[in-house]
Design a protein around this nucleic acid. Structure first.
Lengths: 233, 233
DNA sequence: CGGCCGCTTGAACGTTTTCAAACTCCGTGG
DNA sequence: CCACGGAGTTTGAAAACGTTCAAGCGGCCG
């Protein structure tokens, strides 16, 4: 939290590798670059809160953001993560609602933010861009539906195995086969939708089964097939 | 299942009261009406299966359709219902994926179907129409996220109470305060994500608490506030 | 060095599921 | 018209699963 902020370089702010923006005309892309603001955020910072009216949407250029809802008793339910190339906050803008989630930085990040109105304008003007965003939301909707099935029908053990696989697919493994994302046990529990203690016990079972190797928050994937079988994929 | 099919009248096939199509130009609406096919479906019929490539999308003019995914052991998880004015099947078309759900008629229905390509064309050409669809998907995405929170954190009792409220909001009550949708106990269980027996026991608890009155599949809502409190809304 | 936060383990508890059996309603065919 | 069969519903009892509570440990930051 105490890391000193710095102003990201021009290069770190580039929106070149955001597939979404490739659909824009040169002129529109120019406009986006003109309107964009870019900043550095450190772990723990909150981008926006559930219930907030969105004035901007965000493009992740670096780092990881967790997106979660807060339950009655204050318990978080993590809905998604955003990493380089992802955009966030756009859902509420397009459905003209308040934010239904909170977004928090969990790995130091560089983000661009763009005014909501610009998004709406682009969507209304550029059908190809609009189609691309639509594809995205429809994919997310499909994923959300799958997750509803999982959470409703699978055991905690199956879900934890599945989450590890999903994290591997999204963030990949480093040269040491270790997940490229660092989460607390509590955060893992808040993805799976269970108690922290259950995650701890199950992870240690997975260790006994030689599916993973644990080293603090580092999780090394030893037996992907074992995990896949456990997840009933 | 044995009901004899009939060809719906011109009027029953009208797409006038589908808010989505109001965004079309006269010319486009003409085209839609030209391309549309309309038919009657009786309870139990399946519109499309999970995994199927969609060649059409559907507009519900009458009746109720349940949309569900099938779990590993064959257990259904109901994701949504569609009634008059709703469209379905469009998600898979727009994300260019196979259907991730199955759609089954649960109340005799009149549906129009329109070729997928037409949807894609309209979305690509008419930004205002496209924006409307986008709003819809973004809303659905918000609802899906809420449901993930609920299913992950609430008890079965809370969820059942919530489902009753949601059903009331979507389908309304008749003059006798009875839910305008008839579901088996098993179907209720497949929305809530629990076992049939649990639904039966909890419904009868709700009856003891004077929240509802039960008469076969008819559920009469006596105490909405009580249910709301139980649902921890 | 102290304190805090996160991690871990054990044991008891509660909720929910599963299995088994019986009952009701309804449509079909004898 | 009645018997039969099937699907859906209901109830009870036992078992499984997951949560909660309580306590102790460990490492890191100030």
């Amino acid at each position: 939290m105490k890391k000193k902020k710095y102003t990201p370089s021009e290069e770190e702010c580039s929106l070149q590798n955001h597939p979404i923006f490739q659909r824009l005309t040169d002129e529109e892309f120019e406009l986006v670059n003109y309107e964009k603001k870019c900043d550095f955020f450190s772990r723990g910072e909150i981008l926006y809160h559930e219930g907030k009216r969105m004035s901007d949407f965000y493009c992740v250029n670096k780092g990881i953001v967790k997106i979660y809802k807060t339950g009655i008793d204050g318990k978080e339910q993590i809905i998604a993560f955003a990493k380089q190339g992802n955009i966030l906050g756009y859902r509420s803008i397009l459905s003209d609602e308040s934010a239904c989630t909170t977004a928090k930085i969990i790995e130091d990040a560089v983000l661009c933010f763009l005014p909501s109105q610009l998004l709406v304008d682009l969507v209304k003007k550029n059908a190809s861009f609009s189609y691309e965003i639509m594809k995205l939301t429809c994919q997310e909707l499909g994923e959300a539906n799958s997750y509803i099935l999982d959470i409703a029908q699978k055991t905690v053990r199956e879900r934890l195995a599945e989450v590890l696989i999903l994290l591997k697919n999204k963030f990949g493994l480093d040269e040491n086969k270790t997940l490229n994302i660092s989460l607390t046990r509590e955060e893992l529990a808040n993805i799976v939708g269970t108690a922290t203690e259950s995650v701890i016990r199950l992870l240690s079972e997975f260790k006994d089964d030689d599916f993973v190797e644990l080293n603090g928050r580092k999780i090394k994937i030893l037996d992907l097939q074992g995990l896949t079988k456990t997840a009933s994929f």
